[in-house]
Amino acid sequence: MLELRLVQGNLLKKVLEAVKDLVTDANFDCSSTGFSLQAMDSSHVALVALLLRSEGFEHYRCDRNVSMGMNLNNMAKMLKCAGNDDIVTIKADDGSDTVTFMFESPNQDKIADFEMKLMDIDSEHLGIPEAEYHAIVRMPSSEFARICKDLSSIGDTVVISVTKEGVKFSTRGDIGNANVVCRQNTTVDKPEESTTIEMHEPVSLTFALRYMNSFTKATPLSSTVTISLSSELPVVVEYKIAEMGYIRFYLAPKIED
């Protein structure tokens, strides 16, 4: 028996909007730790890892570890039917081939049940080793989204370089090239508007902008984004989900052929 009650139901709506374009089908794993997902995109270039900790749910019952295979587009369709202020409960019976999403309006005057068919998905979990990153950039998530969108109108790839001067996002394409430099800026009033750069070593890596733009679909989940870079490692683009966990996107860099 599984029953997870999330008062901020719109968090789950936002999570689905953030991953459904990158991943088609995925197993959601439910354990005493929380509700999680790890999945690769169809071309095995990017990986998404989601964790919603059990403590973040108002009620969390998970009698045994369960893995539920879901089509994320279908799940997103169902969650779109929940109101933004609705409480969402995920329910599944042991051995059942369906999952139920229950939506309750805040004043309990409307209760809806949406039952979705589960699917068998063969997927292996990848081990993500702890790593020391050469540079960690924390910046407003809307700013990062804007840069990725702007650069993708010029080129297909972005070079992210971190030096003492700041973090530089560069692209080049048929019509020309573009560089956006963000300097460390902690003097603003609100911490969520600041840019901080923790650099141990300068680093410069090239990534496909198509994936970066896809990651920025998670922008509504968090006002800030953390970009962790190390040469010879996938970049980690992390959006913290307040009081609940995180969504992390890993993207392998491009190299000279």
């Binding site: 690769m40 095995h44 270039v45 990017a46 990986l47 292996e124 979990h125 990848l126 081990g127 993500i128 080793p129 790839t157 090239t206 496909a208 490692l233 996938p234 890993y250 993207l251 392998a252 860099p253 491009k254 190299i255 000279e256 052929d257």
Partner: peptide
């Protein structure tokens, strides 16, 4: 010319 690396080059199955 640049080549896209797969994620499996960095992360192995558990």
């Amino acid at each position: 010319k640049q080549k896209q690396q797969p994620i499996s080059r960095f992360f192995a199955p558990k």
